[in-house]
Amino acid sequence: MKILVVQQKMIGDVLTSSILFEALREKYPKAQLDYVINTHTYAVVEHNPYIDNFVFITPEIEKSKLKFYRFLKTIKKEKYDIVIDVYGKLGTALISAFTAAKTKIAYHKKYTAFVFSHTVQRLKKPQHNASLAIENRLKLLEPLDITFKNRVPQIYLKPQEISNAKKYLESSNIQDSKPLFMISVLGSSPIKTYPAKYMAELLDSLVANTKDAQILFNYIPKQKTEAKAIFDYCLPETKKHIFFDVFGKSLREFLAITKQCDALIGNEGGANNMAKALNIPTFTIFSPYLNKANWYSKNEPGHNIAIHLSDYIPYGETDKNEAKKDPEKYYLKLKPEFIKPELKNFLSNL
């Protein structure tokens, strides 16, 4: 038996959808399990023992209709028995349509439902006290008679990667005897980024509440100016604890470095999901326009905390819609004074 799971685009989505493979392997121990992903997301699922093959969608394939058609013909030759479309867009529906699979599963959408043998309605509220991201993915397995079992994504690092990260941190004067924190100072976009002055104030609080804290910033080179602005807003004492130029040069290096940290703190995004998959405690600040239940559950394993504006003030669907249009207005309502006690409690429990 050959099974294909299709999940394009974002790193966090690709990582989260990898939970399907563990469940599929339990149900079909001898099946070939393949994963369609974008090339830039490979690092978070590399070495996953439940996945047999990766089928990559490259930037060239995405930009060229001819190359995409050739890609579809390649998929067709594989003669899959089952295809599960997690992404649920027109392009992935075409991938499903081109497979020879008799069983095709996806979330229900009117304009693509005819492609699939089984469609599943997304949950709006969790049924098993997990995050909606987890529950909705596992719901795609119901047509295969695979019942819900709470699962969490895992990232698999090689011993050499961990060893290299430890050597790099040591050479950067990071001391293993002192607490080390990875800070997601920036979100994936301004709409998902806590205001710079507020973030700096939280870092000041972190240093004040944690003896000998060592702080790393998670940013990519093109974000250096924005990250430096947050550094500049910090108190002089806080700046002494920040190792601004210590960061992973690749995603796998970032993962190995994060594995050495006591916690990851900051804006919601792929980095938080990756830290959880490395069994590192997380303290996550959600954008006001997002639904916290999509990516967080109080019952998830480990010591994880999530903060949302709705935790502190009355907040409805209208507010979420307005927050997407004007994120800064709503972010400014999520004052550091709300978050500091939560952060202090989180740190004390590490």
Rank of each mutant, 00 (worst) to 15 (best):
V5D: 06
I19K: 00
E22Y: 00
R25L: 09
R25Y: 06
Y28L: 03
P29T: 02
H40K: 00
T41L: 01
V44N: 05
F54M: 10
F56D: 11
E62Y: 06
F68E: 10
K77H: 05
D85S: 08
Y87H: 11
L94A: 15
F98H: 05
K102H: 13
I105C: 02
A106Q: 08
T119K: 04
R122I: 08
K125R: 14
Q127M: 11
N129W: 02
R137C: 07
L140I: 10
L144T: 11
L144M: 11
I146H: 10
V152H: 07
L169C: 08
S172I: 07
S172T: 05
Q175D: 09
S177W: 06
K178C: 14
L202G: 02
V207H: 12
K211P: 12
D212S: 10
I215C: 09
P221L: 00
A227I: 13
Y233S: 11
L235W: 12
E237A: 10
K240H: 06
F243M: 06
G248M: 05
K249Q: 10
K249W: 07
F254M: 15
N272C: 14
M274H: 03
A277G: 00
F283C: 04
I285S: 04
F286R: 02
F286G: 03
P288G: 08
N291P: 05
N291T: 14
K292P: 02
N294V: 15
G302H: 04
I305G: 01
T318I: 09
K329V: 08
I339Y: 04
N345M: 02
L347G: 01
L350V: 11
